[in-house]
Design a binder for these strands. Sequence first.
DNA 1: GTGGTCTAGACCACC
DNA 2: GTGGTCTAGACCACG
Lengths: 134, 134, 134, 134
Amino acid sequence: MRIPIQINEHSPEPLYHQIETQLRSLIISGQIQEGTLLPSIRELANSLNCSVITIRRVYQDLENEGLLRTRQGTGTFVAGVGEQMREKFKRDTVVEALTTAVETGLSLHLSEDELKTIFMEIVQQKYNQPKERK
Amino acid sequence: MRIPIQINEHSPEPLYHQIETQLRSLIISGQIQEGTLLPSIRELANSLNCSVITIRRVYQDLENEGLLRTRQGTGTFVAGVGEQMREKFKRDTVVEALTTAVETGLSLHLSEDELKTIFMEIVQQKYNQPKERK
Amino acid sequence: MRIPIQINEHSPEPLYHQIETQLRSLIISGQIQEGTLLPSIRELANSLNCSVITIRRVYQDLENEGLLRTRQGTGTFVAGVGEQMREKFKRDTVVEALTTAVETGLSLHLSEDELKTIFMEIVQQKYNQPKERK
Amino acid sequence: MRIPIQINEHSPEPLYHQIETQLRSLIISGQIQEGTLLPSIRELANSLNCSVITIRRVYQDLENEGLLRTRQGTGTFVAGVGEQMREKFKRDTVVEALTTAVETGLSLHLSEDELKTIFMEIVQQKYNQPKERK
DNA sequence: GTGGTCTAGACCACC
DNA sequence: GTGGTCTAGACCACG
């Protein structure tokens, strides 16, 4: 099972956090299905070229959130996410991100219309060129 | 000159970063005008209840960004950033914040319409109740 | 990795600035290669007999200039500056230093020839006895 | 007597030092002649738009160097600079400035020829457009 | 009074 | 182990 996670070396965001965020998205959005066996800590650490400590932390954090289940000697599986929970999770995450952005606009005294215009441009662009390549 | 800055003790965001962000906003949004003499580092440290060094760092970082100008023995001033640059600065900041939010939506497989709807709700709410209360 | 930096205790030039200048030179002249892991701030502070904070500042300033890259928990690396940029950097630095010197000559009403003669003497001397001894 | 001194607000160089350097040059190069009565501390402070304390320091430092003489109740005069001393002074000043520049080149591993070429370009330019205008 | 530098030492987050 | 933040407090230089 290959997990499509991108690491940004130059970001100040901690490694474990980048990975957690992306893996969480993959699970909640259903791109990795319930019951899937994830790669072992070592495998993933290897393929992402980072420390096992970092991956262990990621798995553990997500297990604490109830998104993963670990079975001794067997491996780590994707736990079930109820449809309702999934929707709430998605919505909450997006609301938070958008709220931050809107507050930024507010604090800079941007008008409502300017903010909307810029938003529409970005949506337009991102949703028509969905896959980025390096 | 009183500087309206709010510190959130419980935020994981570093103190100096909270102050920097707010002061930067005040300057590039024009709420503090070019040439204004800011409070001395000791004064501001006192009124924000933090260490002199923290304020020193804030002033220095913003000076490195070209937003402040300081003269030993005299004080710290708001530097002149051209109107054009100010606009660019504002736009860049907002574009970055919105892009992050939109990408979050994309990664969660949210539809364009859902994202727009949520955005409009937030804008509606934030722009009609601009002052937060605790 | 040992970093050849000399500190002059008696110079009025601030410690952090002496170190910054020398480390910057080492990097942009290519004497320390891209990707090199620098000593930890504690190590360098120890070997230069100065405070951790002073070294921290040096590393941070150079990171802001784009010459270093640091990752919490991992260490501080020499960032990749393109060959082109490196050359520009070198040239700019030297041009600035020479311009200052020439302007000094001008303000003292030195003739063009006198200035050139003195310059040639100094170059002759410095480039044939490159290593200073104490 | 008007003293042609330019202050650079944006330079990190201390005010008193900028003024001292320029006044010293004017005296040593003979542009202000021996015996000339300089403006009073207040006058000069006024015309340069800086503090009297700053000017007092300048006059005092230059008096300590033997370039000025103060007579109670009369004012501050330019002291005599012997021809020999003047030449030595000029040469020393220029040698110091050029040495710094050459050492910068050396530390960046610039070749002798590169350094010479850049120097010649700068001299060419500066000596043919001697008066800067703002 | 102002800012500029440097110190020792603490505690936290990350790998 | 690494770097990141914050503290208190000292001393100097500038205006």
